[in-house]
Amino acid sequence: MKKQMTNIYRVMTLSVLLGAGSGFFQTAVAAEWPVKGDFVKGAQLWVENCNRCHSYRDPQELRDDQWITTIYHMRIRAGFTGQQARDLVTFMQKSNK
């Protein structure tokens, strides 16, 4: 039981440290939604990363709103930062028509 709590504390401490170091409540208070990113940076991120785990997926495949959920899903999988995710969403949304 003691060990169990130690483990939980460890992860909690780690997450708080990681969070505190980078502005913990940054997104929690972000009022603007959806947030726009940088198209050019998004394009480069797409070319360099989106074929690492699977083949490139065509921007034409999904609607704007679907690209948001997909890119945030990929943010969790691939470890993109929030800014990189916003850049990627902007690139996908501008390239799907």
Binding site: S15, L18, T27, Q83
Partner: peptide
Amino acid sequence: FMNDYSILV
């Protein structure tokens, strides 16, 4: 999405 660099799953 706690912030730009960490996500709690």
